[in-house]
């Protein structure tokens, strides 16, 4: 079956090269270095205690939940700037629904979910059918949803802050699906994150749909020419991102018992940062869910590590920016070897 012809030029790369070219590797090395660094300077101050570890896993979980779906969308070549506002808005739906409209929790969650599906579908349609760049559509969404969050809460409850969710839902067992502790101070959200990462990674690398995601982002025309329903793939992913926003909102609102108009602010960038740190390309076609999980962990470790090390928070954003730049440079090097076209 294998005819050795002289012009066959594919060759197996040495194991080392193949490992280095995996997008997650740079991020994984980075997170280990950071962890060791903070363990040394903050270890005696609680960074290594179970509570300390839980504190950055909780942060990683929250950003990782939206980061996972945002990564799929980025691989498919699209962007969602409105995910942070979606977290705020759907959180407000849940809080208003339970406290003001007297809805049972399941109904409030269903309302938020239904809205997210509709919103994701609408964004997807605008992007794929009307050819408006997703950057613009979701930038509009960012302001629209944030403004609506303030507007609705103010007109219904006279203030853009809704408390008392825990009283309103009482002992509804459904809340323990989203709120509460798994073990010591580790949130239930951590399990959601891990679950999402596993499902996301399997879908991306082990299914037909995952193959399509790569193809749609790598070259929409090639994908279309191969008979892949490009529009459907993108719309599904926009919906998935919005729905993950509802999940994060549910976790936040039910564990904190309140919603305010600031919730989720900046998550759109944090999600993108985790993806890029993990080796996902903003131009689509490449990326990794595991990489994003490592990126989310990086964010959590830096954020809490600075605190344990007693460094002023003022530097957090600067360090994040630096890490992002570093990750992009490393990925650029890795990618140069793969693609010559």
């Amino acid at each position: 079956m294998t005819m050795a012809l002289p012009h066959s030029r594919t060759r197996e790369l040495p194991l080392g090269r193949r490992i280095v070219e995996r997008p997650e590797v740079g991020a994984a090395i980075g997170v280990i270095v950071l962890w060791v660094f903070f363990a040394i300077i903050g270890g005696s101050d609680g960074f290594l205690t179970t509570r300390g570890i839980a504190s950055y896993l909780n942060i990683a979980a929250q950003v990782g939940i939206v980061g996972t779906t945002v990564t799929l969308l980025l691989i498919a070549g699209e962007f969602d700037l409105s995910i942070g506002s979606m977290v705020g808005f759907s959180g407000m739906i849940i809080a208003l629904g339970t406290t003001q409209a007297g809805m049972p929790l399941w109904l409030a969650l269903l309302c938020a979910l239904a809205f997210a599906v509709l919103y994701g579908y609408a964004v997807g349609m605008l992007v794929v059918r009307w050819n408006i760049p997703s950057f613009i559509v979701t930038l509009a969404g960012l302001f629209l949803l944030r403004g609506a969050t303030i507007g609705f809460s103010r007109s219904i409850a006279q203030q853009p802050y809704i408390g008392g969710v825990k009283n309103a839902i009482g002992t509804d067992p459904l809340q323990y699906l989203f709120a509460g502790k798994l073990w010591e101070s580790l949130d239930v959200g951590f399990l959601w994150w891990i679950g999402l990462v596993i499902v996301g990674a399997i879908v991306l690398t082990k299914t037909k749909f995952g193959n399509w995601i790569f193809a749609v982002g790598g070259s929409p025309s090639a994908a279309r020419a191969s008979g892949i329903p490009v529009a459907r793939v993108k719309i599904i992913l926009f919906i998935a991102v919005s729905v993950s926003g509802v999940l994060l909102a549910a976790i936040q609102v039910l564990s904190l018992g309140s919603a305010d108009s600031f919730r989720g602010q900046g998550k759109e960038f944090e999600a993108a940062i985790t993806a890029v740190i993990g080796g996902t390309s903003l131009s689509g076609g490449t990326g990794s869910i595991i990489g994003t999980a490592i990126g989310a962990l990086t964010l959590g470790i830096v954020r809490q590590g600075l605190f344990f090390a007693g460094v002023d928070y003022d530097w957090y954003q600067a360090i994040l920016g630096l890490l992002l730049l570093l990750a992009v440079i490393i990925n650029q090097f890795a990618r140069r070897n793969v693609s010559k076209s």
């Binding site: 594919t10 299914t207 037909k208 193959n211 193809a215 790598g218 070259s219 994908a223 076609g285």
Partner: peptide, 27 residues
């Protein structure tokens, strides 16, 4: 073709063979 994807995935793009595992369908 898509340079970032593997040879076999490129070849089978849009007509991926499916392996069933319970209710799940894998590439």
């Amino acid at each position: 073709v898509l340079p970032q994807m593997s040879i076999s995935r490129n070849f089978m793009l849009g007509m991926e063979p499916i392996r069933k595992f319970g209710p799940f369908r894998f590439f």
